[in-house]
């Protein structure tokens, strides 16, 4: 059966940690770093559970800072 596999690349320097991508993700891939912050002091987003990514790009769509890239492949 074909399986959709995706991955996200987050520009952690540009991320403001707004959490909207975390909320938008249907498969709970994303989370905010709990302790680590970027240069501007934001707890940036990261793929906490990358295996679950289906490449739907919901995170990128709602990201106000355009700091998420999404890649997708359909594998058989």
């Amino acid at each position: 059966m074909a399986k959709v596999i995706g991955t996200v690349e987050i520009d952690s320097a540009k991320c403001k940690g707004c959490n909207l991508c975390v909320v938008a993700c249907p498969t709970d891939v994303l989370a905010l770093r709990a302790k680590e912050v970027n240069d501007r002091g934001y707890h940036f987003a990261y793929a906490a559970d990358p295996e679950k990514c289906i490449g739907c790009a919901s995170c990128a769509l709602v990201c106000p800072d355009a700091c998420i890239e999404v890649y997708k492949v359909i594998s058989n």
Binding site: G55, A57, C67, E69, Y71, V73
Partner: peptide
Amino acid sequence: GGSKVAAK
């Protein structure tokens, strides 16, 4: 064979 589906 996959591709980039979202970016800046």
